[in-house]
Structure formats: structure tokens, C-alpha cells
């Protein structure tokens, strides 16, 4: 056992309770509260022990997305939200408990990915009727319904499609990047899924038919870019004398671990960032 957590219906650890423990055999335990404590949770507490640090996240969406309240426990620490506050109260639908190793290399991915992605996409759509609408969102996607045994780094980009003599259409592309550590300890990754969305309208189907194949084609370019970035990480790790034992993802940015106790937890949005963790 390494992480023990409890979720409560009311503030100050009162009311109906759900209790969970995560043992050392697994990295994650995930919970979907459903009709029991779903949208009912007001307080939570957790402890990490037995050689591990730990994190617990409660999410406002049932798919480990939306806003979250997290707890960050160094080994031997108990952390708690006696009241998750009006922003999160009665809004938590799912949770993830995570075993954290003591020796890890942590890489926030948003800044690593956004720049090259923007440059590549802008180059690909130059001279077309498609343009980027804002910056990409990069976040961790855990066990989605379209691929429920895997976790991904998702790159999500809003697009605008201009039509002659017609109002613009909003569109969106999502690339789900699968990362893993191969048997030689080298980080490998590729775009595993491409999703395209076009807003409803008379030309939605035509736009989707034209846009989606091009975005699928772009996935191979993105995979090449990811490969070159990962090769750089591997090279730097080799220079630093690191060898990796496993790889996993955290929601959003890197959680600070106590002490000081003010780092007990945080609140944020799951789509703010994705954090790659390599255990040493």
C-alpha cells in the first residue's frame, strides 16, 4: 500500500464516505463516483507511505478532465481539503490516486510541444482557407472511451475555416500522442489518434471530408517532430548518466511536494498542461 484516501459528502470530513487504497503494484487507481458521491464531494484527505510519495486528484468531469482539486503527499504526510470551496463543492465526479517514486525526472510538456506544433501547423496551412485560432492546449488524457486501456498526451487546436461568400466555420483538431518506454529504456511516441470536429452548418460535412484527411496526413509529420524531441531527451539523459525504469503522466503541471506544508495541494484545470514523469 502506498496511498490511502477518503472522500466525504460534507465539509470537515462528515457525511457519506468513500475509502480507497492504492498498493505498490500499480501506478494509478482511478475512481468514477457515479450515483454515490458523484457531484456530492465537499472534503477529502489522503496519506502516502510505504516508500512512495503520492498525489490524489478529484476532477469535475467524469473522464478525469475539467477542473481539479489535488493533494500532494510526500511519504509520511497526510494532506487534506477540509472544504474544497464553492468552486469545486458538489462538483467532483472522478478521481485518480498516483504512486510517486522518490527519484524521478519531471518534464512539463506544454512548453516543449506548443512552439514546434504551432510552427509546423502554420507552415502546413499557409495559403489555405484554414487558419489557427489561438494557441494549442496540451494536456494528459487518461483512459478515454475510444482507447480505454491507454493514456495519452493530447494536443488540441482550434481552427477557423474561411469559405468564399459564406460565414467562417469553427473547427478543432485533437492529436492523441501515445508515449512509452521501450525495452532499451528509450522514450518512444507517436500520434495514435486524430480527431476532427467541425461546427454544425450547411457545409459541415464538406469541410470535414476535406479537412480530416489532411489532418490525419499531418499526424505523420507531427510524429516525426515528436520523435526528434524525444531523441533529444534520450541524448541529454545519456549525457547525464540517467537510465529510465518507467514512464507515466500526471494531470496538468508538476505538483509541488511538501514541505513546506503550503504545498499540500492545489486547484487548477486538467487541460492547463501535461507532465511527463520518468522514473530513475
Amino acid at each position: 500500500m502506498a496511498v490511502f484516501s477518503e472522500f466525504f459528502e460534507h465539509t470537515n470530513f462528515r457525511g457519506t464516505t468513500e475509502t480507497f487504497s492504492l498498493n505498490n503494484s500499480y501506478r494509478y487507481k482511478w475512481i468514477k463516483f457515479g450515483s454515490g458521491l458523484g457531484d456530492e464531494i465537499s472534503s477529502l484527505r489522503a496519506r502516502a507511505y510505504s516508500g512512495y510519495n503520492g498525489n490524489v486528484y478529484g476532477f469535475t468531469s467524469s473522464d478525469f478532465l475539467g477542473d481539479f482539486a489535488s493533494l500532494n503527499m510526500a511519504e509520511g504526510w497526510t494532506c487534506w481539503w477540509s472544504n474544497v470551496g464553492s468552486g469545486m463543492n458538489d462538483d467532483i465526479e472522478s478521481a485518480i490516486m498516483i504512486n510517486r517514486n522518490k527519484s524521478e525526472l519531471i518534464i512539463p510538456l506544454k512548453d516543449q510541444i506548443s512552439g514546434p506544433f504551432i510552427a509546423g501547423l502554420d507552415e502546413a496551412v499557409a495559403g489555405t482557407n484554414v487558419s489557427r485560432n489561438g494557441d494549442p492546449r496540451v494536456y494528459s488524457l487518461f483512459w478515454p472511451s475510444h482507447d480505454p486501456s491507454r493514456k495519452f498526451v493530447r494536443i488540441e487546436q482550434d481552427l477557423r475555416v474561411a469559405l468564399d461568400w459564406w460565414p467562417d466555420y469553427d473547427a478543432r483538431v485533437r492529436y492523441d500522442v501515445y508515449l512509452y518506454l521501450n525495452s532499451s529504456g528509450v522514450i518512444t511516441g507517436y500520434v495514435a489518434w486524430t480527431h476532427t470536429w467541425v461546427e454544425g452548418g450547411i457545409f459541415s460535412g464538406d469541410i470535414l471530408d476535406e479537412l480530416h484527411p489532411k489532418l490525419v496526413e499531418g499526424a505523420s509529420t507531427l510524429t516525426e517532430e515528436i520523435q526528434s524531441q524525444l531523441a533529444l531527451v534520450t541524448l541529454l539523459a545519456a549525457f547525464g548518466g540517467y537510465s529510465f525504469k518507467s514512464l507515466y503522466l500526471l494531470p496538468a503541471g508538476e505538483p509541488p511536494m511538501p514541505p513546506p506544508s503550503s504545498n499540500f495541494g492545489s486547484m487548477g484545470s486538467a487541460t492547463d498542461d501535461s507532465t511527463l514523469v520518468l522514473t530513475l
Partner: peptide, 12 residues
């Protein structure tokens, strides 16, 4: 090794 790292927690 990469994917079988999670277990499902069942609410009551």
C-alpha cells in the same frame, strides 16, 4: 509494461 499500470477503484 506501459499500460497495465492502473487499477479501478469501485465506489460502494
Amino acid at each position: 509494461s506501459n499500460d497495465r499500470d492502473f487499477v479501478v477503484g469501485l465506489p460502494s
